[in-house]
């Protein structure tokens, strides 16, 4: 059972926003970054990615635009908004607090 992967999946939105805070990106590239960073523990399907992007767009955390790519396909790029950056900051702060609290419980 991929416990780390399951735990990470609960934070997919934050992970996507943190990657987008570095550079604009598109679905497959984002997925590859996630796979590489987590040593393959977090791999999302297109269905999941779509759901995440849809939610982020609805909350105005990201914007999207189309750009030509290789392989004769158009790619939909996503960029983080100011609101998204603020949200990411709040999530980061919440994570630090959570980590601190969990360390106390787990006696780390």
């Amino acid at each position: 059972m991929n416990i780390v992967g399951d735990l990470l999946r609960g934070h997919t939105a934050s992970i996507v926003l943190s990657i987008l805070s570095e550079n604009d990106s598109y679905g497959y590239e984002l997925n590859k970054t996630m796979e590489r960073t987590t040593d393959g523990k977090l791999m999302l399907t297109e269905a999941t990615l779509y759901t995440v992007f849809k939610r982020l767009e609805k909350n105005e955390y990201v914007n999207s635009y189309w750009k030509d790519g290789v392989n004769n396909v158009k790619r939909k790029y996503y960029s983080i908004t100011e609101k998204g950056i603020e949200y990411l900051k709040s999530q980061t702060a919440a994570w630090i607090e959570l980590e601190h609290t969990m360390k106390k419980f787990l006696k780390l």
Binding site: Y26, G27, Y28, N31, E46, L49, Y50, G69, V70, N71, V73, K74, R75, K76
Partner: peptide, 10 residues
């Protein structure tokens, strides 16, 4: 179109 693009890249 978005999904096809991602899958073809993969």
């Amino acid at each position: 179109k978005e999904i096809v693009g991602n899958l073809i890249d993969r």
